[in-house]
């Protein structure tokens, strides 16, 4: 028999959960592992029994990189685009940005707090320095 599908796919489930402005991630009901990116099965144990839980949103910058592009015509300064990998306190790692922090101020090991950015259906997780967050 064709394997039954969950009601919606994991990406849509993620979008509907984070619509409340908080970061949600999956947890495995069998092994307890925390999971990101969203999936239909647990990458730690293979279980299909996954549940969504609101995450603390807190994490630590694991690494960083800063794309420096030559100035465009009419511009004098190079454009920076800094990216980070954040280790969530729950365990999983994600790529993200710190939109309100100057690239040279981003430090490996700095504590950060998640913020949901973007439009409905296309939300993405960005981070702010922990002390600046509410």
């Amino acid at each position: 028999m064709n394997h039954p599908l969950p009601e919606t796919g994991p990406d849509r489930q993620f979008q509907s959960h984070v619509a409340d402005g908080h970061l949600w991630i999956q947890h495995c009901s069998d092994c307890g592992g925390a999971i990101f990116h969203p999936r239909v099965l647990c990458p730690h144990c293979g279980s299909l029994a996954l549940e969504w839980r609101r995450a603390s949103g807190r994490g630590t910058v694991y690494s960083r990189a800063d794309l420096i592009q030559k100035p465009k015509p009419g511009e004098t300064e190079p454009r920076h685009h800094a990216l980070v990998l954040v280790d969530l306190d729950e365990g999983p790692r994600m790529m993200s940005r710190l939109p309100d922090v100057a690239p040279e101020e981003i430090r490996i090991g700095m504590r950060v707090q998640a913020r949901i950015a973007g439009d409905p259906g296309e939300y993405a997780v960005v981070f702010d320095p922990e002390e600046a967050a509410e």
């Binding site: 690494s63 794309l67 790529m95 993405a124």
Partner: peptide, 26 residues
């Protein structure tokens, strides 16, 4: 490309290797 990385506009493959270098340095 990885669904949850793309919204942040990484420049593949450079971003990944720069992150590995930054972590190795730290």
């Amino acid at each position: 490309q990885p669904t949850y990385e793309i919204p942040h506009k990484p420049r593949y493959p450079m971003t990944a290797y720069a992150m590995a270098a930054a972590r190795h340095m730290a």
